Amino acid sequence: MKDKVQLELDGISFELKEPHSFEWIARLGTVFRVFDQQDSGNLSFGVLGRDGKRKFVKYAGARTIHANSLSAPAEAIHYLKSSVSIYEDLAHDTLIHLKDHFATEHGYACVFDWVEGECLHAHWDFPPPAKYEDPRSPYFRFRQLPVKTRIQAMERILDFHTEVQRRGYVAVDFYDGSLIYDFDKQTMKICDIDLYRKGSFTNTMGRMWGSSRFMSPEEFELGAPIDGVTNVFNLGAMAFSLLGGELDRSYTRWDAGEALYQVVIRAIDPERASRYASVAELSDAWKKAVLQDK
């Protein structure tokens, strides 16, 4: 038995572990891009609609090549279906907009407005170390932008996650692969919030989903609380990715001012009690520090 099969839609080739029917996608329009390198168990498409507008379609139900523990189609379908209410509850200018969702014969699809820009962790095109070194890498290009521009992008992320917590949700599996940056308009968008959870909860997994570069100590600890204080850490880690040395969190690798550095270093304190009590508190401290650093 072959490990993978090649499929084609509208002249675009992609790979799966086994054949799968995509007859349903023709009614949405013409496929112009396929994203088949995700580890979530989802397959995504860029589709040009008959109205001339582009759409982003996320689909669960096919056996993808790079799927992780969520790889079973039934599990992937469950999580994608469950994400619908999350996108609806957390609708925000910074979040990609869910237009439609529906079941197919063998899976489930979510249709989003297409967002111009590039994923800051395009691992399928620029795996490390290329992400950090290749001038074509979206992450590398972002890091060349003026500090003020990057601070503003981070503030969009903070504003969205302040709303996430205000509306009673906890971010899960938030990392730089969740960021789409439009270099022409200098705007940041957030995607892939499928695993965000309503309400605080207890870690029942041990190592949770996510990139270890952004995860708090409690996301590795069975029985630990996962809540807004956890997200304070996640966002501090993101700030070091966009403005510092990522995992090298020394001041020498920090591109912004000292006041802002002190805010972010507190956010990623291993001791929960030493961090800010909420994302809103972190965001307020951030904005005051930006004024101090001017």
Results as ranks from 00 to 15, higher is better:
23 E>R: 02
262 Q>I: 00
230 T>Q: 03
103 A>I: 03
128 P>A: 09
73 P>C: 06
73 P>V: 13
110 C>P: 02
105 E>R: 13
254 W>T: 00
103 A>C: 09
164 V>E: 00
107 G>C: 09
146 P>M: 06
223 G>I: 12
52 G>E: 10
168 G>L: 10
273 A>D: 13
97 H>E: 10
195 L>Q: 03
243 L>F: 05
206 G>T: 15
115 V>R: 08
18 E>K: 12
147 V>W: 06
248 D>A: 11
182 D>Y: 01
103 A>S: 15
70 L>W: 10
140 F>E: 05
183 F>D: 09
69 S>K: 09
258 E>N: 00
28 L>G: 04
124 W>A: 14
1 M>R: 13
144 Q>C: 07
127 P>L: 11
196 Y>R: 00
271 E>F: 04
7 L>H: 10
223 G>Y: 06
268 I>M: 07
30 T>G: 08
253 R>L: 01
171 A>K: 02
141 R>P: 04
238 M>Q: 01
197 R>E: 11
273 A>W: 10
102 F>R: 01
172 V>M: 11
10 D>T: 08
262 Q>A: 08
95 L>H: 07
294 K>F: 12
121 H>C: 14
34 V>E: 06
48 L>D: 07
277 A>K: 11
24 W>V: 06
285 A>H: 00
271 E>A: 07
2 K>L: 12
117 G>Y: 00
23 E>M: 09
96 I>Q: 13
33 R>F: 11
203 N>Q: 11
64 T>Q: 07
189 K>Q: 08
168 G>Q: 11
40 S>H: 03
168 G>T: 13
107 G>I: 12
70 L>Y: 14
77 I>F: 03
208 M>C: 08
97 H>C: 00
284 D>N: 03
38 Q>D: 11
181 Y>I: 07
267 A>P: 02
231 N>G: 00
136 R>Y: 06
166 R>W: 01
241 S>C: 13
66 H>K: 03
289 A>L: 14
69 S>R: 10
199 G>Q: 10
255 D>L: 14
78 H>D: 15
247 L>F: 09
65 I>Q: 12
234 N>K: 05
112 F>C: 09
292 Q>D: 15
254 W>Q: 09
190 I>C: 05
85 S>V: 14
226 I>N: 01
156 R>D: 15
275 R>C: 05
87 Y>R: 01
166 R>N: 12
204 T>A: 12
204 T>C: 02
6 Q>M: 01
103 A>H: 10
246 E>Y: 13
256 A>G: 06
284 D>Y: 06
213 R>N: 12
4 K>N: 03
160 F>S: 05
167 R>G: 08
7 L>P: 04
41 G>S: 11
135 P>M: 07
74 A>I: 11
83 S>E: 12
9 L>N: 13
175 Y>H: 15
142 F>N: 04
17 K>R: 15
143 R>G: 00
291 L>H: 10
126 F>C: 10
288 K>Y: 03
73 P>A: 00
103 A>T: 15
242 L>K: 02
9 L>I: 15
196 Y>S: 01
164 V>H: 09
143 R>I: 04
270 P>N: 06
71 S>Q: 12
166 R>C: 01
34 V>C: 09
171 A>M: 07
224 A>R: 04
30 T>R: 13
191 C>D: 03
46 G>N: 01
73 P>G: 05
116 E>G: 08
99 K>V: 14
